[in-house]
Simulated scan of single mutants.
Amino acid sequence: MEIQWRKSSRSTDAEGNCLEVAVKDGEVLIRESDDPGVIIRTTRAKLRAFIDGAAAGEFDDLA
């Protein structure tokens, strides 16, 4: 089965550089469109925890 990659409807980069996501066999797959060979695999729960943490500012002081 071919993976169906999706990107945000808010992605407006003219060159198509964006993050794409897909779901396969219960895993969430994430890749950059300009380097599609590198794929991050995670779970929905872990991705949700990361997004919630980022929204709450948990990573703001890492720079």
Rank of each mutant, 00 (worst) to 15 (best):
F59A: 03
D13T: 08
D52A: 12
I40S: 13
A22G: 13
E58M: 06
R44F: 09
D60M: 02
D25A: 14
G53P: 02
D34T: 12
E20R: 11
K46D: 15
D34A: 11
K24A: 13
S33N: 06
C18Q: 05
G26L: 13
D52Y: 04
A22I: 08
I40V: 15
T42F: 13
A55V: 01
L47V: 05
V23N: 12
G16A: 02
V21A: 15
D60L: 02
T42Q: 06
G16I: 02
L29H: 06
S8T: 04
E20N: 04
I30M: 15
V23T: 14
K24L: 15
Q4L: 14
A55C: 05
S11N: 03
I30G: 08
R48L: 12
D60E: 08
P36V: 12
L62P: 00
G57W: 00
L47R: 03
R6E: 09
I3W: 05
A14D: 00
A56F: 01
L19S: 07
F50R: 03
G57K: 00
D35S: 13
L29E: 07
F50D: 04
P36F: 10
G26E: 11
M1Y: 12
R31S: 03
G26Y: 07
I39C: 06
I3G: 05
W5H: 03
A22M: 09
V23D: 10
K24E: 15
E32N: 13
N17T: 08
F50G: 01
A14M: 08
E15Y: 12
N17F: 05
E2R: 09
L47P: 04
I51T: 04
E58A: 09
T43D: 05
C18N: 07
I51Y: 01
R44K: 11
L47W: 03
S9D: 07
S9T: 14
I3A: 04
R44H: 10
T43K: 05
E20L: 03
K7I: 02
A55I: 01
E58W: 07
A14C: 05
E58L: 08
L19M: 12
A45D: 07
M1S: 15
S8E: 03
K7T: 05
A55F: 01
E58F: 04
V38C: 12
D35G: 09
A22T: 12
W5D: 01
S33A: 08
A55T: 02
L29V: 06
W5M: 04
